[in-house]
Design a protein around this nucleic acid. Structure first.
Lengths: 329, 329
DNA sequence: ACACAAACTGCAACCGATTGCAGACTCATG
DNA sequence: CATGAGTCTGCAATCGGTTGCAGTTTGTGT
């Protein structure tokens, strides 16, 4: 069906080797020959078969991406970033969705590992040991998680929390509630640490209300506990949780930001459209995907480029309508 | 690095051919031999290299998926459905995002076509001719678009619109505005037709306000025109547009559903969280992805299975808080 | 014990590329 | 005109699998 390198060779009146070289090492072939080859390629609409090349060179020009849930806008954006950057490098992307099933991670990576040069693994739920085992199989770049010596890109969660707290303190808030995500989540842990540092530095009080699912429902579930803390502001694990809070607070007649200010994390598209529009720490999601791809490709080119082994991204506080001055007592 | 079929063969004390057969045509090899092979496979953690197989069999066990925008929750869900179903069939998925660029479509499909068995093409913006050309290159299944003879899966837009109109009419609305999506969009055209049929059948008035971007901003832009039509209800091209309408109507002090009822299409996650929660025609997005994969795989098995050449999915009206009785005059 | 078919297994060619090596050609120089 | 250096180009091996064909083993009937 599709033209092969031999078809091109025949049409150009040269051998397959020459065609191969004309395409990948143009300097090695005579300009006239190269032109004939180019014409034949054009005429046949020839595109090299990467799989075949991969057998020889060990490089398939393909990477894998494993995410917990594509329907989560956070990962959708990240995937988009990976996608875009990979295409620029003429690399194709296999996408796999674990459906939040931690046990599926290693299986998927293993299945993928034979067909790709490396894998970008997002927010892995597995243990450090599992990740180390996975990294044996293929080159792995982690996103949103730092694990023992593995290359990766993550956000500076501490700094993001600091910005959020500083904003709230400037508005006069002195007691801030915190709705955590899943206890096992690396991000939750780091955000909690960042919060503790920030409240300590600014001498305000932190009122943690526990761990909730990182979803709208999680936010709904947390809202009443938040209200009960007596805090005048709340920072949520992520925007979905924050929007859940907004919904439940509204139905309880608690005014945002009049009675309570709400801050999220991520800045997903939905946050802008929430009512009131959500103040949030914007994490550069597509950027994370792009950096992860660059990191992975660099690592593939030079497996011990220890210098480029980790990317660190910063969040940026986006102030909208869900935060305001602390209510007067 | 990774074990090859020859490694397995050596360990099991048989030839590579036998290993190959033990794995793909188990009936052809002796049970005892098969067991030895299985043990060796297990011990080495062997996974066949699909790319190599693809060279011989012409089937790579890989399909491509091309969507206009992964960050759009509609396509994210669809991708998830494709993903899940493909995995069940042990098929890997290449995902490519055109970034809403219609000219990128055919290029991407062409680049993909050498590495995949077939492609699922979502909401293609290209012309029928372009699509026909693409279909020459590889097996294609369309989603959200019916084009000249190409296999595909789409929604029954007419019926969805009928349900929405019936709901509004039952609530006493007699004049319904319609905010269309991009004029070139296949869905817009079909939804408009469905609406015209429905209003005619139920003897109410339709007030189209033109075509807008299928986004939140599009909805914001359309809101004032909607208000000016004097309609008591509006049906939006999709949920994002409907949510944009909600936002602008709210800031203009127009009460929903008190003054105006709003209906969307899609039922993205955000719709449940909108204020008021959005009444919408739920389109089974993951289901569409699943059906598309089944269709594609069936077509690959039997290229002229004309019987299974088209999937038709139905929407379902989800009534929430954005629709209510028409205001009394 | 012998012939014959059935059931397995291995050899070798092949898929579409890449690449080390050596042969062929060009051209300037002695 | 022979020689040598430089350029190009082709041959053939290779990657990791699959598969047609032929050879070997096994089992059965007589």
């Amino acid at each position: 069906m599709a033209a092969t390198i031999r078809d091109v060779a025949r049409l150009a009146g040269v051998s397959a080797s020459t065609v191969s070289r004309a395409l990948s090492l143009p300097g090695m072939v005579n300009a006239a020959t190269r032109a004939r080859v180019a014409a034949a390629v054009e005429q046949l609409g020839y595109e090299p078969n990467r799989a075949a090349r991969g057998l020889i060179t060990g490089r398939t020009g393909t990477i894998g991406l494993v995410v917990p849930d594509l329907a989560n806008p956070f990962f959708a954006s990240l995937t988009k970033g990976v996608q875009a950057r990979a295409r620029r490098h003429d690399v194709a992307v296999f996408v796999a969705d674990t459906d939040e099933d931690p046990t599926a991670e290693s299986g998927l990576v293993r299945a993928l590992s034979k067909q790709v040069d490396g894998v970008v693994l997002c927010s892995p739920r597995g243990s450090d040991e599992e990740l180390a085992a996975i990294a044996q199989e293929t080159t792995v770049v982690l996103v949103n998680r730092a694990a023992a010596g593995l290359p990766g890109v993550s956000y500076d969660n501490e700094d993001g929390m600091r910005q959020a707290v500083a904003h709230l303190v400037a508005l006069g808030h002195r007691r801030i509630a915190w709705v955590g995500g899943p206890a096992s989540s690396w991000s939750t842990q780091h955000r909690a640490v960042g919060l503790r540092n920030a409240v300590e530095a600014l001498q305000v009080e932190l009122a943690p209300v526990g761990n909730f699912a990182p979803t709208y429902e999680g936010g709904m579930a947390a809202a009443d506990q938040v209200a009960a803390t007596g805090a005048t502001a709340v920072i949520a694990y992520n925007d979905l949780v924050a929007i859940g809070l907004l919904a439940r607070l509204h139905s309880r007649g608690i005014s945002v930001p009049g009675d309570l200010s709400v801050v999220g994390v991520d800045d997903i598209a939905m946050s802008r459209m929430a009512r009131p529009a959500l103040t949030t720490v914007r994490l550069p999601k597509q950027e994370a995907g792009r950096v992860a791809v660059e990191l992975l490709l660099a690592l593939l080119d030079d497996p011990d480029a220890a210098s480029t082994t980790h990317g660190d991204l910063h969040g940026e506080l986006i102030v909208r309508d869900s935060t305001g001055p602390a209510p007067l007592k």
